[in-house]
């Protein structure tokens, strides 16, 4: 499903991680561990294709990925259902909005503007987008932030269901990701050797 070979990623011209080699099979998940600033978000953005890799290769499934960042990409003046329907149309996978809302326990709030939802409800609505996207590989950045225990458990069940249907996920998480048996990848081991911004080109200049 996902194969990464010799990947190096950079943020703001500074290489953070190098020598990453891992794969995620269909039905499998991988949990990224690391302190703040260790490059979890940068790695996910690189996997999602938002950032070019510094080195190495990323092989993604042909059907594409669904990426969920810190921000939930919700428009406060649109209702929960409208927000979701928009993303369903963009991904064009024919995802059922009502079903997705029910799956995250927001069925009764479908007609409420997203701006009037609580932080946890917004987060759940953001995760419902993954369902309507209909993509096999989920790239999740701290998905359980601002979810209460019940909602976190519901999300874990959702994720387990996705994996059981042959999907895959890469999850960056500090705390419980709800996947006790999933392998973990500690990014501290891949920290790039200290080299600066454009260092190959510039640090060696004799001035």
């Amino acid at each position: 499903m996902l194969a990464v070979r010799g990947l190096a990623v950079a943020r703001g011209g500074v290489t953070l991680l190098a020598g990453l080699d891992f794969g995620v099979p269909a039905g499998g998940a991988l949990i990224l561990r690391g302190a703040n600033g260790s490059g979890k978000t940068t790695l996910l953005r690189t996997l999602a294709g938002l950032q070019p890799p510094v080195a190495g290769r990323v092989a993604l499934p042909a059907e594409g990925v669904a990426y969920a960042a810190h921000a939930d990409a919700l428009k406060p003046v649109l209702t929960a259902a409208e927000n979701l329907a928009f993303w369903a149309a963009v991904y064009g996978a024919g995802g059922d909005v009502a079903l997705a809302l029910a799956a995250v326990g927001l069925r009764d709030l479908a007609r409420r503007p997203a701006g009037a939802l609580s932080a946890g409800q917004k987060r759940r609505l953001g995760l419902a987008r993954l369902i309507v996207a209909g993509r096999p590989l989920w790239l999740l950045d701290e998905p359980t932030v601002s979810l209460d225990a019940g909602a976190a458990a519901a999300f874990a069940a959702l994720l387990a269901g996705h994996l059981a249907r042959g999907g895959a996920a890469v999850v960056a998480s500090h705390g419980e990701a709800g996947l006790p048996e999933a392998p973990e990848l500690d990014l501290a081991r891949f920290r790039a050797p200290p080299a600066g911004d454009g260092a190959d080109d510039f640090a060696g200049v004799r001035a």
Binding site: V14, D197, A199, F202
Partner: peptide
């Protein structure tokens, strides 16, 4: 251009220092 390259070098060295 030489000045700009020196400024970039300075940035690179400072980033290296921060990264320790």
């Amino acid at each position: 251009t030489r000045t700009e390259i020196r400024a970039r070098r300075l940035r690179a060295l400072m980033a290296r220092e921060r990264a320790g």
